[in-house]
Write a protein that binds this DNA or RNA. Structure first.
Lengths: 109, 109
DNA sequence: TTTTAATACCTTGCAATACAAAGTACCAAA
DNA sequence: TTTGGTACTTTGTATTGCAAGGTATTAAAA
């Protein structure tokens, strides 16, 4: 895979990363490290330096809240969960995603 | 539509803009202004300050070439067309796009 | 007790880039 | 010769993705 292609894939991933986070949190509350693992398993390559600031942004936008929880081992975890506003936003992003897919299909014709 | 949502939509669009350009040029050669019109008609909001530098980048990557053509009225037009490399890249981006869609579907489960 | 390893969260500095806005240039018709 | 339409380009600012490094907690090993 050349650099150009990898860069293009990265662009596409970036575009939906915020959406993916809301999707995952809609299923269950999670802390950053576990989100990281889930996203990597889904081939959404992300690194800490991207995820942490993004969670903070989404929290500052009122889409997420968090609570601290003890960990069975290691430091405490910051569990994020969707707010009502976050759920509304997710619904809007579902629409946006469908529209993008439709747009590409249209352009492909 | 609030700012957060508009921003999220914009992020998604950005992610596929390079892809859209290659898709459009695969159908027929075009000059920047007409690409702008086509993209806007497809709801892919773009402005000149985004499109022109992007075309130059893609040309510098060897994905596009251009030729000048007289316009029926107004200044000459820079018609872009896909190179062989551009067509290869487009095929790779088709794959990347399918993968992203699959990833979201997976995450949505 | 000290060190090591694992886990987890956060920040800094750099590079890429999207966009608004302004600039340059060409052409034809008024 | 001025106006309006078309077209390409550049500049300055703000955002943000990422590599790399930093801080902190815990438990187990040395």
């Amino acid at each position: 895979m050349d650099n150009i292609t990898e860069n293009a894939r990265a662009q596409m991933r970036k575009g939906v990363l915020e959406y993916c986070i809301l999707c995952l949190l809609a299923k269950e509350d999670a802390y950053a490290s576990s989100l990281l693992t889930q996203l990597k398993e889904a081939n959404m390559i992300v690194v800490e330096g991207t995820l942490y600031p993004m969670l903070i942004r989404q929290k500052n936008q009122g889409l997420l809240t968090y609570r601290w929880e003890e960990s069975p081992q290691g430091p405490p975890r910051k569990y994020y969960s969707l707010t009502d506003k976050g759920r509304e936003q997710l619904a809007l992003m579902d629409d946006a995603w469908r529209e993008i897919i439709a747009t590409i299909e249209e352009i492909k014709k």
